[in-house]
């Protein structure tokens, strides 16, 4: 309830500011004007929103799979870790916006380049949180497994991996929060559809209220993705942190 009141309060303040200062609509449209555009251009907006949502969700899934696979490989093999971990870190040192034009050049203006971009932003928090979780298994469990003559792979799959799932869940939450960044940067650099594409197009034509309407939907999409991931994570990892006692 409280966030809703805050949001309404902010919108009212913005409306009042827009009317009081008389700022031109193409600079700062009042929320009422954005609302009108939201209704009038609903079909166009939804079409673009579906496109962007698809990019975000596919990017998230790809990033999660890629990140989880890398983290497990790093945990299982010191050789891989030594060779590939520096590469992973370097990949994050390059700002994603700097390689966005390259990805568009290689993968085209379609969805693939945006999915790749989102996956690139997402996989790092997933790798680092899950790998961290895999390294921090309760030593008591590992001792118990040793006295039971456990096979190393069974320890990884049946103890270390489930024990690291809470860490993976927090990685997935971060990933869901940053997924829109990758998708929208891709759309700004070069695209033929999507909310980011619509924003650049409408801003270039002075249709600022439409750009704001697209931004509003983008915000809603990001929130929806985060909450869906959060709920999925809670269902997947219902137990508490093991060292809680």
């Amino acid at each position: 309830m409280r966030p809703l009141i805050t949001a309404i309060g902010l919108l009212l303040a913005w409306e009042a500011l827009a009317w009081a200062t008389g700022v031109p609509v193409y600079i700062l449209p009042p929320p009422s004007r954005v609302g009108v555009v939201l209704v009038e251009r609903f079909d166009l907006l939804m079409e673009q929103a579906v496109w962007t949502a698809a990019e975000m969700v596919l990017g998230l899934i790809l990033g999660l799979i890629l990140g989880a696979a890398l983290a497990v490989v790093f945990a299982a093999s010191a050789g891989w870790r030594r060779w590939a971990l520096p590469l992973v870190i370097v990949s994050q040192a390059i700002p994603v916006i700097a390689i966005a034009p390259l990805l568009v050049l290689w993968l085209g203006y379609g969805m693939a380049s945006k999915v790749a971009m989102a996956a690139l932003v997402i996989f790092f928090p997933v790798v680092s949180t899950l790998y961290d979780g895999l390294r921090r298994t309760d030593p008591g469990w590992l001792d118990l497994a040793r006295t039971m003559d456990a096979k190393p792979r069974a320890v990884l799959l049946q103890i270390r991996l489930p024990a690291a799932l809470p860490a993976f869940a927090s990685g997935a939450r971060i990933a869901a929060a940053v997924a829109p960044i990758g998708a929208v940067i891709g759309e700004w650099v070069g695209a033929s559809a999507g909310l980011g594409f619509l924003m650049t197009q409408s801003l270039a034509r002075g249709q600022t209220p439409l750009a704001f309407a697209a931004l509003f939907l983008l915000c809603l999409l990001g929130l929806a993705l985060y909450h869906a991931t959060d709920r999925a994570a809670r269902r997947l990892v219902p137990w508490q942190s093991p060292q809680g006692e």
Partner: peptide
């Protein structure tokens, strides 16, 4: 041998 620690070490999942 079988080993039992002070904590129960049951796996929560």
């Amino acid at each position: 041998l079988a080993y039992m620690a002070q904590r129960d070490l049951l796996l929560p999942w």
